[in-house]
């Protein structure tokens, strides 16, 4: 049975349709990745599933409870790490974690033990008694993560959890998340910009575009469905339409940088493609990655317009409180 069942979920903000009749089922123990360009509706979906936003229409059942009619019960089953900073910077790191433990009704011994555990995980043990306002952006991010992991929820939502972290910390975090998912049977829903991470971590991926699920499947299935390899080339005068007409070409996308051609067995057909393309300045055959799958379905590279700006902005704003 599905642990999360989303049924025709929609959210409108005035004329803008952020989430458009989205339906999806996520099973227990899955690590599910929600990928999509900015503004695709990933965060809005997460906010609705965590009962912070009311859907315009449709609903979802989370851990057996309806997000619209039983929000209190839903909240007892979940944890979330927000994309934007949400810790109190006038408190210390330790106090923020303690506050979280209290909010989730954890007894003192358990609080102490878990706080020590997550602090060492995110490497903040030495700074736990410093005010959060003295933390760097990355340290704050790690603190938020520690907080979200602290109460071992049944379902954990992670909205861009490793954004702006160094690779080493990312590795640590993912190892812990995987261990947690395995040992405690926690179901995890993440949104991320790091396609390689999504590829390695997620059992299943949904690519969201314009508020809808564009495609759904395991990373392997998704890559196979798009098929073959990618040829990247830079050509001065290239006829995109004639390339598209070739029987083995699955898709062609061109932008300022060059042309991306999805081809079955690129090695066999390179000659023909180059003949159609005319004189080229640069050519490269690449294996199919999730990044290409993403590009294939949404027509955009995932990193376009990184949300890091908004993170920095929020952190600045947080600085002016009290």
């Amino acid at each position: 049975m599905a642990l999360i069942a989303i049924k025709n979920l929609s959210k409108r903000f005035g004329n803008l349709v952020a989430v458009d009749n989205l339906s999806l089922e996520i099973g227990e123990g899955e690590v599910f990745g929600l990928l999509g360009p900015n503004g695709a509706g990933k965060t809005t979906t997460l906010l609705m599933l965590t009962t912070l936003l009311r859907p315009t229409s449709g609903t979802a059942v989370v851990n057996g409870f309806d997000i619209v009619s039983q929000p209190d019960k839903v909240r007892k089953s979940i944890g979330i790490v927000f994309q934007d900073p949400s810790s109190d910077e006038t408190l210390t790191g330790y106090e923020n974690l303690n506050l979280h433990g209290l909010l989730y009704d954890m007894p003192p011994d358990l609080r102490k033990q878990r706080i020590a555990e997550v602090l060492s995980l995110v490497d903040l043990t030495g700074r736990k008694d410093d005010l959060v306002k003295k933390y760097s952006g990355g340290m704050r991010r790690r603190l938020e993560l520690a907080r979200g992991l602290m109460h071992h929820p049944k379902i954990l939502f992670l909205d861009e959890p490793t954004l702006g972290l160094d690779p080493q910390t990312r590795e640590h975090i993912w190892a812990y998340v995987k261990k947690l998912a395995f040992e405690k049977n926690i179901t995890i829903i993440i949104t991320t910009h790091y396609m390689d991470e999504a590829d390695r971590l997620c059992n299943r991926i949904g690519i969201v575009d314009a508020g809808k699920i564009a495609v759904l499947g395991t990373p392997k299935e998704l890559k196979q469905a798009v098929g073959g390899d990618v040829i990247f080339l830079k050509a001065k005068a290239c006829d995109v339409e004639s390339l598209q007409a070739l029987p083995f070409v699955k898709g062609v996308r061109s932008d300022d940088e060059g042309i991306l051609i999805t081809v079955q067995d690129a090695g066999l057909h390179l000659q023909e493609i180059l003949e159609k393309a005319g004189p080229v300045a640069f050519v490269e055959v690449r294996p199919m990655t999730l990044e290409n799958v993403f590009l294939h379905h949404t027509g955009r590279a995932i990193r376009e317009g990184s949300p890091e700006g908004s993170w920095a902005e929020k952190a600045m704003m947080a600085g002016s409180r009290r």
Partner: peptide, 21 residues
């Protein structure tokens, strides 16, 4: 006014998403 600030820095989200009624 502090609740307005909490909204701005998203601390309120952390509280609202907790099981607390």
């Amino acid at each position: 006014v502090y609740i307005v600030w909490d909204k701005k820095i998203d601390f309120l989200k952390e509280v609202l998403v907790s099981p607390l009624s």
